[in-house]
């Protein structure tokens, strides 16, 4: 196995009485695409939130690229090379696409803004060229998802955590997005939460299954998706 990129050990998170994460262990290697699946409310988004520093953990430890990151502020974690998207797409919805990208480029230390060559290539690749002057909130969901992705990639991350990247998209758009993610996978380490099993099956090298905050399985997708416990606890109910 390759060098470890993300290493979460015995991570605990409680909300009032709810144990959203119960001693969760997740390791991800450099270059690997890791999928995370589980029923609604099983703690997937919470896991991303604690890793990205938006929530603090109650116990356990998280390290990224060899350095501990638990307790650090989100902006510091981003600068360390870890970025994430949101389940409900998150862009500066009242600013133009160009301003969204410019701000991100500047935050990444690229003074050229949208004229930066890497940012321009991203704009081109994600087909945002014609939409640069549009207000982000007026874009279609698919366009917003692409903008969200462009912003995260402009940061030149080591790990991109995607929280339901195809959620709410049409079948055609899902196919398109999967093509994009397929290309992305060849250059970045990805962490993907999805309910759409097609995405997991085609993209993930390895899959972690969360149920009620507990990791119940961890392995290759073709095994996991057939695993009896996983089917009973999740896939059965989902009818996927």
């Amino acid at each position: 196995m390759n060098e470890i990129l993300l290493d979460a050990r015995q991570v605990e998170k409680q909300f009032g009485g709810i144990r959203a994460l119960a001693s969760v262990d997740v390791q991800q290697a450099v270059g690997e695409t890791l999928g995370m699946i589980g029923p609604n409310g099983s703690g997937k988004t919470t896991f991303v939130n604690v890793v990205s520093g938006h929530l603090s953990i109650d116990a356990g430890s998280i390290s990224f690229a060899g350095a501990p990151i638990s307790g650090r502020r989100p902006h510091a974690i981003t600068r360390a090379g870890l970025t994430r998207t949101y389940q409900a797409v998150r862009v500066f919805s009242k600013l133009t696409v160009a301003d969204n990208l410019r701000t991100t480029a500047l935050a990444a230390g690229r003074e050229e803004g949208v004229k930066d060559s890497h940012v321009r290539e991203l704009i081109h690749w994600l087909e945002l060229d014609r939409r640069l002057d549009a207000i982000a909130g007026m874009l279609t969901l698919f366009e917003q998802r692409r903008l969200e992705l462009a912003m995260r990639l402009a940061l030149r991350p080591k790990l991109v955590m995607l929280d339901e990247p195809v959620g709410g998209l049409s079948a055609v758009e899902i196919t398109h997005m999967m093509k994009l993610l397929g290309e992305l996978k060849t250059r970045y380490s990805l962490f993907v939460i999805e309910h759409t099993m097609r995405v997991i099956r085609e993209l993930a090298d390895r899959v972690v299954v969360l149920v009620s905050g507990q990791k119940i399985a961890d392995g290759r997708p073709e095994e996991i998706l057939r695993d009896e416990r996983v089917v009973r606890n999740y896939l059965g109910s989902q009818g996927a």
């Binding site: 989100p74 902006h75 981003t78 998150r90 500066f92 919805s93 600013l95 701000t103 500047l106 912003m151």
Partner: peptide, 21 residues
């Protein structure tokens, strides 16, 4: 200027993008 406008629009997202809010 770009950063503070980002903070006004969505401070959590600004922080997520690496801006020290």
């Amino acid at each position: 200027g770009a950063f503070i406008i980002a903070i006004r629009e969505d401070d959590l997202l600004a922080e997520e993008l690496g801006i020290d809010v």
